[in-house]
Design a binder for these strands. Structure first.
Length: 399
RNA sequence: GGGGAGAUGGCUGAGUGGACAAAAGCAGCAGACUGUAAAUCUGCCGGCGAAAGCCUACGUAGGUUCGAAUCCUGCUCUCCCCA
């Protein structure tokens, strides 16, 4: 296929990025690619350290998708080996170690979830254990001689830990080398990552140079704040929105972010340009937020789901009535106490104490009526509508 | 290799023999208010129990004691200083 004008391409690539290092090299790579009619190899690696991908990864995937649309070759790297080492980037302490089984399991879900965003036909999925587990001590030693300790210690995350006396394991020190070596193995032209990947990605350039390759260009994307609005989005902090979540959940979670954060999300996750965002700012924040939620649900699911999620949200929260389309549960225990019902049927309540607390604080509504005593008995009926807390709506059938 | 300090609930961090299921703050949950926003206010916030209470928990394994988060010993891990 023919490539678009390199400058046009650059413009598309640049949108939403935090930095491109070095930008002029990117342009010359694009020019060379157009001239030789050869797609560029674009790498982005994710370590399978968590069971699900979220919107934070989504930003990077989205950019990869841009490259795909421009006709370049996307190499999606699953860091199944590097996950084991644990990336120290941006960390204030050592990552908890993760088992091989977990890594394998997570890798599988990653492979599935990336295609919510990427075009499956034009994506190569690779795993770095492939070459890294083959890497012998000799070669490895050669890598270590390419890097100076003081340079690694210059990094903000390490220097902070070092000064504060927080432990740094040698293993973490090694991490950047391994990631950089991946780029050599993959002969990358471009590597994408969050700004916290700066050191790792730039080290890849040094390594490639050493191995006689032309160094990759780093394309850096902003780090997305989680739904709490302050910390980096991550599963372990519980402030994430998963790519694989249901339309209702994605929509609901987006509606609950602060107005301030919404604009940040607009900038990083929507397709709106600054002009459009400016117009949206003039509207009621809730309307703008709904538009954002719809856009993202359409992106990760489809427009129809977005419509349904909107309707669902409006019924539940704007009209405060019971939605039609809710999860159905069967309750078959012999107890007629409402505590037992909640405990069994709810996904968010896991202990009896929690159930009792929630009920006595007024968080349980059955068929429109509040049940504030955990030991009260629910109506003698075969099915009813149950609302648990603010967000959980269920239809429960009694057997 | 030598010397010193330390490990407390999801996190930060008080507690140095009984009043400790463990202060305080953060996070979380529920309610009120709303735009399920933010902010604010109120309550809850180890498990089981209607309750009395019982069980589990202050790195880990033992020990001393009527009684241990608190004292002693081994072990694991972390930090600091010296080499």
């Amino acid at each position: 296929m023919a490539f678009a004008d390199p400058r046009e391409q650059l413009k598309i690539i640049k949108r939403g990025t935090e930095a491109i290092i070095p930008e002029d090299e990117l342009l010359s790579k694009l020019e060379a690619s157009a001239k030789d009619n050869r797609p560029l190899k674009v790498k982005a690696g994710f370590d399978p350290t968590s069971p699900d991908l979220h919107l934070g990864h989504g930003i990077i995937l989205k950019k990869l998708r841009d490259f795909q649309a421009l006709g370049h070759e996307v190499l999606f790297l699953i860091g199944d080996f590097t996950a084991y080492i644990g990336d120290p980037s941006g960390r204030s302490e050592t990552r908890p170690s993760i088992s091989k089984e977990e890594i394998i399991k997570n890798s599988k879900t990653y492979e599935r979830q990336v295609f919510k965003v990427l075009d499956e036909q034009n994506t190569q999925v690779l795993s770095n254990s492939h070459w890294l587990s083959e890497l012998g001590p000799e070669e490895f030693m050669r890598l270590t001689s390419l890097v100076n300790v003081s340079r690694i210690l210059d990094r903000d995350d390490f220097s902070k830990r070092y000064k504060e006396g927080v432990s740094i394991s040698l293993r973490e020190f090694i991490y950047p080398l391994v990631q950089a070596y991946d780029s050599v193995q993959m002969c990358c032209d471009i590597e994408l990552g969050g700004t916290d990947q700066t050191f790792n990605i730039l080290l890849g350039r040094d390594f490639q140079r050493h191995y006689g390759q032309s160094p990759q260009v780093g394309v850096f994307l902003p780090i997305l704040e989680g739904t709490d609005g302050t910390k980096k989005m991550s599963k372990s902090l519980g402030n994430y929105i998963g790519l694989d979540e249901s339309p209702q959940d994605i929509y609901g979670k987006l509606m609950s972010i602060s107005d301030e954060l919404m604009w940040r999300y607009y900038l990083l996750l929507s397709t709106c340009d600054e002009e459009e965002i400016k117009e949206l700012k003039a509207r009621h924040p809730m309307e703008a937020k709904k538009a954002l939620a719809s856009e993202i649900v359409s992106w990760l699911h489809d427009p129809q789901s977005a419509l349904e999620a909107t309707r669902d949200f409006e019924t539940k929260f704007s009209k405060r009535s019971f939605p039609e389309d809710v999860k159905e549960k069967v309750y078959s225990s012999s107890s007629r106490k409402v505590v037992d019902l909640v405990l069994e049927v709810s996904d968010s309540v896991s202990t009896r104490g929690q159930a009792k607390r929630l009920i006595s604080q007024g968080g349980l509504v059955i068929n429109g009526e509040k049940y504030a005593d955990p030991n009260s008995v629910f109506p003698d009926d075969t099915a009813f509508e149950v609302k648990i807390g603010k967000k959980e709506f269920l239809k429960v059938e009694i057997k």
